[in-house]
Simulated scan of single mutants.
Amino acid sequence: MENNQEAGDALVRQDGANQSRRNVLKMTATGIAGLGVAAVATSPAVAQTRLTLTDKWDKVFPKSDKVDHKKVTFTNRYGITLAADLYQPKGVSGRQAALVVCGPFGAVKEQSSGLYAQTMAERGFVTLAFDPSYTGESGGEPRNVASPDINTEDVSAAVDCLGLQPNVDRERIGVIGICGWGGMVLNAVAVDKRVKAVAASTMYDMTRVMSKGYNDSVTLEQRTQTLEQLSQQRWKDAEAGKPAYQPAYNELKGGEAQFLVDYHNYYMTPRGYHPRAVNSGNAWTITTPLSFMNMPILTYIKEISPRPILFIHGENAHSRYFSETAYAAAAEPKELMIIPGAVHVDLYDNLEKIPFDKLTAFFKQYLA
């Protein structure tokens, strides 16, 4: 998910574009993660209908012979066309329960979300893993910008897409969000009453970490300085006629915290590297954090009830507190499952750590 050094040391005055970018990244971030520049050929956001989709299997996980797979596209409420992978269990007839899968923040559907989607399809669900607006193979200009509002809408638009599939039961749709999309899906499900159950795996609350830093360590003075920098960056982008981008994500220089090394070991090695992923050595726009800084996405988490929430987190994850505080704020029915010995990125792709049996039982119970 993201590369943030210590949240508190991310604030410095603007003394040069490179230094400014580095400082904004440290504090706001979390390492939002970063797809480089345009990964697909699209027209401006006003007419997102033609996407260039690859035909080859370019996932970071092997293709299963137990499911059928195809590329699909759909359009969100803002007119942005999104690209997705639809996975369907072979040899199953009738209308099935279905799952939208998304995340991590700054990743693409060829990584963790695709792995989760394919695995849950093997277990009997129709699943959809998608690239968020402005990233991966999805549409939207400029490239590599995020928004808590638009990304929340992306989740509901994916529900629209699933519900239009002839073999999907609209009354049995659930959602899985990974890492930063764990918080996004909780926000989406709070308002989208069509979703019957939701799971958040190794979750981040992106609005919390960008506005307050890790462990809520950012002071008001630091926050104000960062907002000053971001505000001034808008003048630079306006003058240039295009956005500037943060430094590349998940490149190590030495001395980083272990969780940043863990991110690198997923996103920048054959284990999880994908050229379209923001986190795989690409970058978000510098001003991406602006809309996250004053929009707490978990404000209405209690309104998910009476629909169930399953939180899954690693025992040794630096991000564990996000799930614990979200769990405390949520209403019943809810469950928090802690995976012994697991760190944050173990729940991206470690098949010995990801509790697929639990996810299967959870959704079979509540999407029955």
Rank of each mutant, 00 (worst) to 15 (best):
N4W: 03
G8R: 09
A10P: 01
R13T: 15
Q14N: 15
D15I: 06
D15Y: 03
A29H: 08
G31C: 02
G34C: 05
L35I: 12
G36T: 13
G36E: 11
V40S: 12
S43R: 12
T54A: 15
D55N: 10
W57P: 09
W57C: 05
V60S: 07
P62H: 09
S64A: 14
D68C: 13
H69G: 06
V72K: 12
G79S: 13
T81Q: 15
D85S: 12
P89Y: 14
K90L: 14
S93Q: 09
V100T: 09
Q111E: 15
Q111A: 12
S112E: 08
S112G: 08
Y116Q: 09
A117G: 07
Q118E: 11
G124F: 13
G124P: 04
V126Y: 01
T127L: 12
G136C: 06
E137L: 06
G140I: 02
R143C: 02
R143N: 04
A146Q: 01
E153Q: 15
S156L: 13
A157S: 14
D160H: 05
D160A: 08
G163M: 15
P166S: 11
N167H: 12
R172M: 00
I173D: 03
I173H: 04
G174F: 01
G177A: 03
G177N: 06
I178F: 05
C179T: 05
W181I: 00
A188G: 10
A190E: 00
A190M: 02
V191S: 12
T202P: 02
R208M: 14
Y214C: 06
N215H: 10
D216R: 13
S217K: 08
L220W: 05
S231P: 00
Q233V: 10
R234P: 04
Q246W: 00
P247Y: 02
A248V: 04
G254T: 00
Q258G: 09
Y263P: 04
H264E: 08
R276C: 03
V278Y: 13
A283M: 07
T288E: 09
P296T: 06
L298R: 01
I301E: 01
R307Q: 14
F311W: 15
I312G: 01
G314P: 02
N316Q: 14
A330R: 10
A330L: 03
A330E: 02
G341W: 08
G341I: 11
A342H: 04
N350G: 05
E352H: 11
F362K: 11
K364E: 02
K364Q: 12
